[in-house]
């Protein structure tokens, strides 16, 4: 008696159920990011959203993408965002943020984003059949063979960003008129 391939009554496969669960979790927490009024809670909801996305990557047969998602987006970017918020916010300040004055700009941006995404989804040839498992060596081969130039260009861009950051953060040795 093995566990059936599909769910008995609905007929959906287990992967589909997991996909729906992760997708609902992702969209739900993404909604929470914009609806919650406490900015730290929004940040925590964003982390949950990234985690659900990592789950989707695992379902699509790309564990390296999922691990990188958790490592970079949860372990580094979200941490830095929360870090910056905590350094700049105090509990004595306005706890409830007032974004609502910019709702029309946000609405226009959201509609534009939907249009762009729809165009991309419709125009892409998705191929047929189940997703292929991608291993680390596959990704490495692509990255250092077919896409070497973009990879190096990104490296140079990041180096420039690092140098720029150091330059901006550097104190003027004479002590006056820093950052000119």
């Amino acid at each position: 008696m093995s566990i059936p391939e599909t769910i008995p009554i609905i007929g959906a496969s287990w992967d589909d159920v997991l996909f729906v669960l992760f997708a609902v979790a992702m969209l739900g927490s993404a909604l929470l990011v914009v609806t919650l009024r406490d900015i730290i809670r929004s940040g925590v909801a964003m982390i949950a959203c990234f985690a659900a996305l990592a789950g989707l990557y695992v379902l699509l047969g790309s564990p390296i993408m999922a691990a990188t998602q958790v490592l970079v987006y949860i372990g580094a970017i979200s941490i830095l965002v929360l870090f910056a918020i905590m350094l700049t916010q105090t509990k004595s300040g306005p706890a409830r943020l007032v974004f609502q004055t910019q709702w029309w700009a946000a609405a226009i941006a959201a509609v534009l984003l939907v249009v762009v995404l729809t165009a991309v989804v419709v125009s892409t040839d998705w191929g047929a059949g189940p997703p292929q498992e991608s291993t680390t060596s596959d990704v490495a081969r692509l990255l250092f063979d077919a896409y070497t130039l973009p990879f190096e260009a990104v490296s140079v861009l990041l180096l420039a960003a690092v140098i720029g950051g150091i330059f901006l953060a550097k104190r003027d040795p004479s002590g006056d008129e820093a950052g000119r």
């Binding site: 982390i47 564990p63 390296i64 691990a67 990188t68 958790v70 490592l71 949860i74 372990g75 580094a76 979200s78 941490i79 929360l82």
Partner: peptide, 12 residues
């Protein structure tokens, strides 16, 4: 990669 991803969770 998995190990370091889980290490990142601790910081959160």
């Amino acid at each position: 990669l998995y190990l370091f991803a889980m290490g990142g969770l601790t910081v959160v």
